[in-house]
């Protein structure tokens, strides 16, 4: 599977915000059926990469190839048709709307101009079933759900467009262990569906549990890529903090 051409390929990506260099010459590859974790300290540039892939920011320099095709994403709306779906840290859910409305927000199904509510409910249930989510009543407003359930709704939302690549920004932050278990199992599910996944997280435990490869960012630069099967906590931590033997080889 590693031999095939990557689904997503970022090359020499750079982004400045005023005097701040958020990203400098960042490379990243994601294959189909692969979970690539992006780890790093605060302000290492993880979320900036996610936003560039999602089309929120345009990079100052560098290229983004999807399926070998060079894309210039100018807005999140431009990223959707290419099959890129993103769940951000502060996910854009409407607290006062119910689960079905949120999942189909802006992409409502219509039959002859009218909303096809039964069909949407049926699909919403099937997405949530794939998630193994325990949300009994899809008619409740979102503010009544737990943090884990809201995360599930946010991830279920990405499935509506049948994506090729899903970007998850800190999906397990502030979740309990059982909710984390659900989200991690779901990430494995996305991989088994053959999608590429970019998982951004602080939690090395979660990352090492589900990722196939771990890419470390440090001060906006690549600081090593690790195969989860062989890399130890110490290897990855030292690359994150920059305190180490990996620094010597630079």
């Amino acid at each position: 599977m590693d031999r095939s051409a990557p689904l997503l390929s970022l090359r020499s990506l750079s982004k400045h915000f005023g005097g701040v260099r958020a990203l400098v010459d960042v490379d990243l590859d994601v294959h189909r059926g692969e979970v690539v974790a992006l780890v790093g300290d605060n302000a290492a540039g993880k979320s900036t990469v996610a936003r560039i892939v999602a089309g929120v920011y345009a990079p100052d320099a560098g290229t983004l190839h999807l399926n070998g095709e060079c894309l210039a994403l100018t807005s999140p709306a431009a990223a959707f048709p290419h099959g890129i779906a993103t769940v951000f840290q502060e996910f854009a859910l409407a607290e006062n709307l119910d689960v079905v409305d949120n999942i189909f927000l802006g992409r409502e199904l219509r039959t002859r101009g009218l909303l096809d509510r039964p069909r949407m409910e049926e699909l919403a249930r099937s997405y949530l079933r794939q998630l193994n989510a325990r949300i009994p009543d899809l008619g409740v407003p979102l503010h009544q759900l737990s943090a884990g359930q809201r995360q599930c709704v946010a991830i279920a939302r990405t499935l509506v467009r049948q994506p090729q690549l899903v970007v998850l920004d800190e999906p397990t932050a502030s979740l309990s262990v059982s909710q984390t278990a659900e989200v991690l199992s779901y990430i494995e599910g996305l991989r088994d569906l053959g999608l590429g996944v970019i998982l951004i997280s602080h939690n090395l435990n979660d990352v090492r549990a589900v990722a196939d490869r771990i890419a470390v960012l440090r001060h906006g630069r690549n600081n090593g890529t690790f195969d989860t099967a062989t890399a130890s906590y110490e290897d990855i931590l030292s690359a994150v903090t920059g305190a180490t033997r990996h620094e010597k080889h630079d």
Partner: peptide
Amino acid sequence: QRLPLPVEHRSDTTLDR
């Protein structure tokens, strides 16, 4: 419930979880 675990997970973390 099933929770995926990291390679060479540590006994203290795993027992806590």
